[in-house]
Amino acid sequence: MSNVFAQRRQKLLSLKALRGASPTPAHTEETCPACGGTIRRRDLAAGRYVCPLCGHHYPIGAYYRLSLVLDKGTFRELDGSLTSNDPLSFPGYAAKLDAARRRTGMNEGVVTATGRIGGQKAAVGVLDSRFFMGSMSAALGEKVTRLVEYADKNKLPLILFSASGGARMQEGILSLMQMAKTAAALERFSQKGGLYISVLTHPTTGGVTASFASLGDIMLAEPGALIGFAGPRVIEQTIGEKLPEGFQSAEYLLEHGFLDAIVPRPQLRDTLIRLLKLHGKGGSDHAK
């Protein structure tokens, strides 16, 4: 019975996303976690969830992200029903999955879709940190891989927005294997001349960083995003000292040569339009 309500909620949420509505009510004030300033939620939503006082980028949901990036009315979701079936029969996992589905209205931590960006058709995937921290499950790896294969088959440019806490512990080794699966699909796509733009958002860590997120032809990130392989606490324990200010931030990665650019959220769509244009119509050589 509760399933009926969950499905209704999912449907409503996806309709909402299509209209480009903000995922949070706009009637209260909010304290910015970065600068401590008080912001009206209405202003925050109008500014795409970037703090108007300090520029802090709030994490945003996948459907909302897609509504910011895609041309209106062009969103078409792929594999929306795909989910995990608790392959290791891990204690407590099935119930947690169910709760996450109901809470978020999503079946997995990534939404994959096709749509147009400035008129250019593209295959787009967005990880959502509200669903198990965007962690890599077999279903998430499968959806990303199918999206890569879809882009390959239809000669479309591929754009992935990453946000992930790393591996889905409850799926153990099968989570780990998704790193190889997604990397292999991207290698094939790349060998055939496909364009892949990877956008790293807060936070991108662990197995996602060490697989598809790091393999873009173009590497972009949002300001202030935490990006790394090992978590800061693990590193501090290993080296026995405090980490420097700004370690593993997008700005740190840019300085160390792992990003092409840091792009504030309000400029992201225009940047993507420009990049697609720079890579020709299909963004892949077999399209020319």
């Binding site: 990397a183 392989f229 590193i235």
Partner: peptide
């Protein structure tokens, strides 16, 4: 596991592993 150190992160541990996976797969 891969070494979780400051320099390892600064030098792109994630990128290095990802690139190795992709290369080996092809």
């Amino acid at each position: 596991g891969a070494y979780p150190g400051l320099e390892a992160e600064a030098h792109g541990q994630g990128e290095a592993i990802a690139r190795t996976l992709a290369l080996l797969s092809g």
